[in-house]
Each structure stands twice: as C-alpha cells, then as structure tokens.
Nucleic acid binder design. Structure first.
Length: 590
RNA sequence: GGACCUGUGGUGCAGCCUGGAGUGCACGCCGGCCUGUCAAGCCGGAGGGCGCGGGUUCAAAUCCCGUCAGGUCCGCCA
C-alpha cells in the first residue's frame, strides 16, 4: 500500500501517526492521537497504554495511573525513547521504541465496544454490521478499505494514461426492462412515473461514443435488485470502459493494462500475462465460462467409450467425467451427497467408479454400475481418464451443456480452493455465443445484451442458425470468479434490426425501450466496444477475502437489510403522499 | 420460490444426538493488589435462562412443529 508521506502525518493535533514512530524519532517530543487499544496498569507508579490509529500501535508509558478505558479517544504527549534492554516487542513494528513520561488528554470517552477491535476475534456478521464503525477500526478492515482505494487509484491512473476521459453518468435513469431487475425511484413531480437506478451505465456510455468522447471510463456504481451472494451486492462498483474506433483486441489491451496495474499496486507483483481461451474451449475443458485455472482436473470425454452402450444410465448424447485423485476413499454417504448435489445442479444422476487394484495387479472398478459395463467400456474408461488405483471417477451422462456444467461445478466443489488464494490465474474468455437458449416464446435469448456485435464469420447464419452464432463478447476471469465482461457493440442500424428481429423484439418495442439510443445512432455512431471490471471482486481477491462484503464499507446482508441503519424502512405517510404512492400491507403469512 | 448450516451472559465456544435445577471454558466488563508489561499477572465480583412462538413430557437449551435473523448454495444476476 502507498504510505502517506511523513509530513502529511502531522496535524494541528498531532505530530506523528502511531504506527510511524520509530528509532529515528528517538529523543523527540511527540504528540499522537488515537484509540486506546490496551491498558496495562502496574500499580500507582507505572501504566502502559497501547495507542492505535490506522497506521498501527505505539506503546505509551505513563509514570502513574491513568483514567482511560478501551477505545477512549486520547491524545498522548511523550518523548520517544528506546525500550529498556530486553523489553522490545518484535511483534510490533514500533516495538523497538516507546513514548516515555507521557501525559494523557482524553478527547472522548467510550463505552466498552460490542466486540474487541482486533483481527483475531471472529465476530458474528450481524453484530459486525450493526456496529460497522467499530468493525472498520480493525486492522484487517482498515487494510481492505485502503487496498480498495489503491486499486481504484491504479485503475484511474492507467485509464488516464491511456487517454481515457472520466465522465459521470446519471443515477436516475429510464426503465429499460430486460436483464437485471431495477431499483425504482418514484417521481415526485410526475406521479405514477419513475426513474430507475442503472444496473450499469451501458446505454449512457454508448451515447458518449456517439457524442465523440472517443475514450470513456468511470468508476461507476451499478445497482441490481437481485438476490445477494458472497460475490454479489445490490450496489457494486465497476471500472466502466468504452472506446471508439477500436476492435476487441484494443479493448482487451486497455483493460489488461489497467487490471495488471491494479494487481501490481495491490500485491506488489505484476502478473505476467493474461491468457486467452474461447468460450467453447472453457466449457469443454472446465465445464464453465469462468474456469479456475489454478488446478487441473479437466473434464474427460467418455462419449466414444460409451457409444451404443447397453448401460441405460449412459444412453445420452454426451458422457463426460472428472477424476478425483485419491477420491476412492470417499464414503458412500459422501458419494450420495455428491449425487444429490449433481441433481441440484440439473443432472439426472451421477455415476461414480472407485478405481481399485485387482487381485492380478491390474486396475478394476468398484461401482454399482460396474457389472453392467463391458470389458471394453471398463478399459476404455480407465484409459480415457488415466485413473489409477485410489482414484475416483465421476461420470455425468446428459446433454452436452448439462454434463459439462454439472461436472464443472463438481470439479470446483471437490478440488476448489478459496478464490483469494494464490496464485492469481487470469483468463480472457472470448467468442461467447450470441444467444443462450430460448425464452418461453421460443425466441433466442441474448447471452450478453442485444447491442452485442455478432462475430463477423457467423453473421450470415444469424437468421438461419442463430444458436450457432458467436458474438464479439468476452469475459475476464480470475481464479474462477467472473471479474467483468464486455463486447464490441453494434453501431449499424441494419445489423441491429436483424438482431432485434431474431430476439423477437418488434420495431415498436425496440423504439419504446431503446428509442433514444437507436435515435442517437441515426446521427452517426462510431464503431465502438467496451468493458466493465468488477472492482469489489477484484479487490476482495487481492485482499485475501472470499466475500466482497469484506471490502465494502457498509454492505447489506443476504436479505438486503442493513443492521446498522435498519434499512429498508417504511416511509412516513407524508412521504408516500408526496410521491403519489400508497403502501399496500404485506400479504399475511400462513 | 427452494435446500442446507448456525442462533446459549458483552464476544467466542462447549452442553443438544442419549431430556433431569443454566452447568462449564476462554476473552471482555466492574472492584482490589501490583514499578516493565505487551493476549500482563494475582485475588474477588457482576452479568444469561439458552432467537421467538407453539407442542410432547412429571420435567425441554436438549425432542417435534412453526417462525424470525445471519451465512453458504440452487433459481435469479441481459
């Protein structure tokens, strides 16, 4: 982390920061301010106070008694001196010195905190959030917030250096139904009408391209009213990027530069390169579009082995497997749990084979399905998976996408490590499909968003075989987390019309939903492309955290509430009336 | 909408499976002692009725049902 230069440490109330008092200050009279981290009294002649600020802790020695308690805010004046022989504390960065002959001024008293302001106490998250201002005093949280600031700073510097212009876009936007559920802001001046908070500045930044900004970026708040997870909050921040007269490679280069800079700023080490793989390859090898490249255990295709098989369970278009080294020791109940998990994920079932050493020294299979296998299938399975005695082979037979995704998830369940654990393995995943399945009316669903440019090689199949069409959309992945996504946008009306037609969006619909964008495009739209990087996720990984809540100052709980403020809360009747709203009682629960 | 885990003094946990007086541990808190500690030490003390509501039972923190809150996940997140 970037240290604040020394002279800035001083204010009119202090000369030094606690964690920066060192041997070079010996002999100086100093004044420090902070919170009482610890008090150790040794009778009427000697007391120690550990004083804490955001830089660390310094020991203050008082020749007498002190009238302070934990978390009192105090100012201490004293003389920096080396600690007496044998009393240095190697655990503390300031442990070589102490402030001697201290006088203490209480700036604010404090009740005992609801929990200790130390990293090593593990406190219930509700309690932490209710008293977040205390939680944030802890060194780990201080470091996380400062790391986030450093990441933001590095991203901004990289974008500035590359000629990008920071432009702020509105938080009060127009509803454009599609995609994530939007937060609604009722209008006071137009009863019955509402703004929405943007799920991203997507359309605004495209308009900025039409406006000739050329290269735009913003550290943008995005808001989505969808269920929360460890890596998802209602509101989150993106490095939002858009550039004109560029292709996909240009965008990947811009964003790589920024992300690698941020990594260097956060970790002190600049990653080598970011590898690129196609979406099809990611699915095929790892069963997911956000592959965790820190470990192998890639998917194995057993379809050739079981082509025309008599094993009923394997009578599916695709038979795939993963191998868990040493997994033969998994108990039957553990395997049952895995089977349940596979079903939860959409598989019809899960077949397992323990690889055992037979009497004759050759590898055999231990499985309820083993007796249904032919000799050829048995040896084919072993050969294809390269599994040996002690290993466990898990097989899913289903449609291609289902088999891959289920095994891809099991792979992470079984062998995955916390996302924040090194090494950091970045990947660009490119050539996403243009469409992902079909909706209730049978129309293809846009995989990214409806302004994504189809892959030029596939454009002629847009109408005839839409599901085979690739798009110029791409994701950035780090250790199995999606860090962000982007695409080359459609800037030509004719192609946009064709895509809308395939999506089943009529001209009238398109006009009512995105009319302002399509209208803008009629006035001269440059070819443009962009990206957005999730800053919460990026920072969490650098911070060694597995939940983005740990790098957000005031996050919401999984049910979307804030234990500190009590949000969300009922509005006062007068507020509702101003907005032309009437609250409907919550439906009675059974 | 669904699955699973958790809920016991201020904090963290054990007790629950196999009901028998809230019983215990660590930290913190309050008071006293203590001139070199630093997760200070020693002595003493206060503080909870086991998330909430039902039920079973002679008896419930413990068993059953429901509910609320937190977490992880599925759905959802163009």
């Amino acid at each position: 982390m970037t240290a604040i230069p020394g002279p800035l440490d001083a204010t009119s109330m202090r000369t030094h920061l606690c964690g920066r008092v060192g041997t070079s200050d010996v002999g100086d009279s100093v004044r420090v301010c902070g919170w009482v981290a610890k008090r150790r009294e040794h009778g009427e002649h000697l007391a120690f106070i550990d004083l804490r600020d955001h830089t660390g802790i310094v020991q203050c020695v008082v020749p007498g008694t002190v009238d302070v308690r934990s978390e009192y805010v105090i100012a201490v004046e004293g003389v920096v001196r080396p600690r007496p022989e044998g009393t240095a504390n190697p655990e503390l960065p300031t442990g070589e010195v102490e402030l001697g002959e201290c006088t203490v001024t209480v700036l604010a008293s404090a009740e005992p905190p609801p929990f200790a302001v130390e990293d090593r106490v593990d406190v219930d998250e509700t309690t932490r959030l209710r008293h977040r201002y205390v939680d944030l005093r802890r060194p780990r949280m201080q470091a996380n917030l400062r790391l986030r600031a450093a990441v933001n700073g590095a991203l901004r510097a990289a974008m500035d250096r590359q000629g990008f212009v920071e432009v702020e876009t509105p938080l009060l936007w127009a509803p454009t139904p599609e995609g994530a559920r939007e937060f609604v802001v009722p209008s006071r001046l137009h009863h019955g009408s509402s703004y929405v908070l943007p799920q991203s500045p997507q359309l605004a930044k495209q308009l900025l391209m039409v406006a000739g900004i050329d290269r735009y970026y913003q550290i943008a708040r995005c808001l989505r009213d969808e269920d929360l997870r460890a890596d998802r909050q209602f509101e989150f921040s993106q490095l939002d990027v858009e550039a004109s007269f560029v292709n996909q490679d240009d965008v990947l280069a811009f964003v790589s530069e920024a992300v690698l800079d941020a990594a260097e700023a956060a970790t002190g080490q600049r990653p080598g390169t970011i590898e690129t793989m196609t979406w099809a390859e990611a699915i095929d090898r790892f069963g997911t579009d956000k592959p965790d490249l820190r470990f192998g255990m890639e998917l194995v295709d057993l379809s050739p082995v079981f082509e025309g098989t008599g094993v009923k369970a394997f009578g599916a278009p695709c038979v795939r497997a993963i191998v868990l080294r040493g997994g033969a020791t998994l108990t039957r109940s553990r395997l049952d749990t895995l089977t349940d998990r596979a079903r939860t994920l959409g598989a019809k079932g899960l077949a397992w084979f323990r690889v055992v050493e037979g009497d004759d020294g050759t590898a055999g299979l231990d499985s309820p399905l083993d007796r249904f296998l032919s000799d050829g299938e048995r040896s084919g399975l072993l050969a294809a998976t390269a599994a040996g005695p002690g290993d466990l082979v898990l097989v899913v037979a289903d449609e291609y996408r289902v088999a891959c995704s289920v095994l891809g998830q099991l792979r992470v369940d079984l062998a995955g490590r916390p996302v924040s654990e090194g090494p950091y393995r970045y990947a660009w995943v490119v050539d996403f499909p243009m469409f992902d399945g079909v909706d209730a009316s049978g129309n293809p669903v846009a995989a990214h968003h409806p302004f994504t440019m189809p892959h030029p090689d596939d454009l002629d199949r847009l109408e005839s075989d839409p599901t085979s069409v690739r798009s110029q959309a791409y994701d950035l992945v780090l250790n199995g987390w999606e860090l962000g996504s982007g695409s080359v946008r459609i800037h030509r009306g004719d192609i946009q019309s064709r895509v809308f037609a395939v999506l089943g969006i009529t001209d009238e619909e398109a006009e009512s939903r995105f009319g302002f964008l399509l209208g803008a495009f009629r006035y001269g739209a440059p070819p443009h492309a962009g990206f957005a990087v999730g800053i919460d996720r990026l920072t969490a990984i650098f911070a060694g955290e597995d939940s983005i809540r740990e790098v957000i100052a005031f996050p919401k709980t999984q049910s979307g509430s804030d234990p500190m403020t009590g949000a969300p809360k009922a509005l006062a009747p007068g507020t509702l009336a101003d907005l032309g709203l009437r609250a409907v009682p919550a439906p009675a629960r059974a």
